[in-house]
Design a binder for these strands. Structure first.
Lengths: 333, 333
DNA sequence: TTCCCCCGTCGAAGCGCTTCGACGACCCGC
DNA sequence: GCGGGTCGTCGAAGCGCTTCGACGGGGGAA
């Protein structure tokens, strides 16, 4: 293994000079820097991560806690993860993958052993057991999602409340007066997952504001459940002309179910969804949707963390504004 | 931060004794060990990962390279990742997440900086550019998937060839004489992804062996493509009564397409798939399938790596035998 | 010309842990 | 009762890097 002293000798300087040339923390003359860079290249030098971490008390690794639970859409999780890794690399950091299963112990472990410099936690619940720990930890963290009490924490997410509102406003603007929300599986609400509840609140608020009749229906993530919900919705609200879907796996089955019940989309029924653009575009009837900007959220989380790591103050809350893309599934009533 | 010298002082022993008590690399008396453990608990001691890595030249971190490419099924990737993390934790290791995007440089970086002790590489191509590097690296690695030239490497995967055969044998056993394979998107074959080609080979071999007429059809991962493939299959092989599907996203659309063309499953057409059990079970017509044992593969990869890390020899190739579960989508002709 | 300061570099200390060799104490067999 | 082993513990040396203080030399201001 080639080490910093080898490089120093080869370049005819001291190890500290090599270190400063690498980190830029002290000025180094153009000429010396070039000699050092040449030596590094020639010898194939790579600083030892452990030694670096020990000496600098910075590991240049971020922890990412991903959820495993049912009721969350796996591809979206993956998009988050990939964007976090990519963004972290741009800041010369790596990403350690933790599963929620490890829980608080996992967070404490990687933080206390100085394995990571900072943490990103996904799928935060309204009353998440990890919050006190995260507040107490001496390492910065960013939550993807909003708990009930975000004081002392840094959070980022799509503004799901506004997303729910935006869907309703779109339908209201098209003249629809009776709308339904097909939501996530019941357990997601039971767990008090913030984003799901926020959609409901936004949906209801906007419906009330527009004098629109509305109802909310959690739905399991399978086609049979979709059919049931569709039937029930029509039974309870025969005048229904608009639906907001916040449940990726049932989006297509639900449209199928409505068509099977004689409601064509969009002629008889307008459908909007809150889901990844990619999904909305590949449904049989491309769906007007509010995108879940997984990549932006992931990147944003990393940026926030980096600023916290170098002491810059950051906003407590970052709510990404929803963006609605009109596709083929909605039309005026 | 509480360090090993603090623990040593508190327990009235030397730091090395604490270290040996922790690692078990030298015998420590019952009584001393207990005092040390008490001190550790009382002081909340956590060894510093960097220091440990530096002194022991073991970071206790594994790298996991996940694919990003199109044509691979994201939930399966996630299952791999989670099972790798879980298995790694059982061996007191953590997992660093790398994206394929970083390519060889990423592998080299984490290996050369001693950030990780070993590597797991997913989605290996038949002629993967990373192979020479992996052979040369001084850190052990395990591939998930089989390249054309696996010499000097350790590989593990489902035996996709046997899986393809098994599907055909099942159909043959039910009396089917004309079968088709609906495969992965064309780009997957163009990339020469081993597992996809192996399925084709197994499928063809078994069909020939049984004197069955067969044809192979790559298929894009969207419903429209599924419909086209279904039509084409029926046009070219009007006598078709069996289909093997190796393409998760089109499994359900394909069945829909066949039914729309007047072929009921399983009355007129038997369908088998190679896909996660979870998917096979939740299709409208539960599909007879060979499972993709993502969790076993992930766990197996970690076990192999652990054995390599402590110098135990391991088999070059680990092929997990396919297991077929009969569900509602196949019946005798 | 003198003084001061800054630029560029060096040496040494130390980050917190593991590991090697050494060393008493104790037990066994003869 | 003595040599040889083993068991349990200690001290010290390092692992490879960063960082702090120091210092020589050169340029600018006075």
């Amino acid at each position: 293994m080639v080490k910093i002293t080898d490089v120093a000798r080869h370049a005819g300087v001291s190890p500290s000079t090599v270190s400063y040339a690498l980190s830029g923390k002290r000025p180094i003359s153009e000429e010396t820097r070039r000699r050092i860079e040449d030596s590094i290249r020639e010898l194939g030098y790579r600083p030892h991560a452990g030694a670096r971490a020990l000496a600098s008390s910075r590991s240049n690794v971020l922890a990412l806690v991903v959820p495993l639970r049912t009721g969350i859409h796996v591809p979206v999780v993956m998009q988050f993860a990939v964007s976090v890794v990519t963004a972290a690399r741009r800041h010369d950091h790596d990403v350690l993958l933790l599963t929620q299963e490890e829980g608080e112990d996992g967070l404490r472990r990687v933080a206390d052993t100085a394995l990571v410099d900072a943490l990103i936690v996904m799928d935060v619940q309204l009353h998440d057991g990890r919050l006190p720990l995260l507040r107490r930890l001496d390492r910065p963290s960013v939550l993807i999602g909003f708990p009930a009490e975000p004081d002392g924490l840094t959070c980022i997410d799509l503004d799901f409340g506004a997303a729910g509102e935006l869907c309703v406003e779109h339908l209201a603007g098209l003249g629809h007066r009776v709308v339904g929300l097909v939501g996530s599986p019941p357990e997601v609400y039971v767990r008090e997952t913030g984003f799901a509840q926020r959609v409901v609140r936004g949906f209801t608020t906007a419906a009330d504001r527009n004098g629109i009749a509305s109802s909310v229906h959690p739905c399991e993530a399978d086609p049979a459940a979709a059919r049931q919900v569709a039937e029930r919705l029509l039974r309870e609200r025969p005048a229904l002309t608009g639906v907001v879907v916040h449940n990726e796996p049932v989006l297509e089955p639900l449209i199928d179910a409505f068509e099977a019940l004689g409601l064509r989309v969009p002629q008889d029924l307008s459908v909007t969804a809150i889901c990844p653009d990619e999904l909305a575009g590949r449904v049989r009837v491309p769906v007007t949707s509010v995108a879940i900007p997984a990549a932006e959220v992931g990147t944003g989380a990393v940026e926030l963390l980096m600023r916290k790591l170098d002491g810059t103050p950051v906003p407590r809350a970052t709510l990404l504004p929803p963006r609605l893309t009109v596709r083929a599934s909605t039309r005026p009533r």
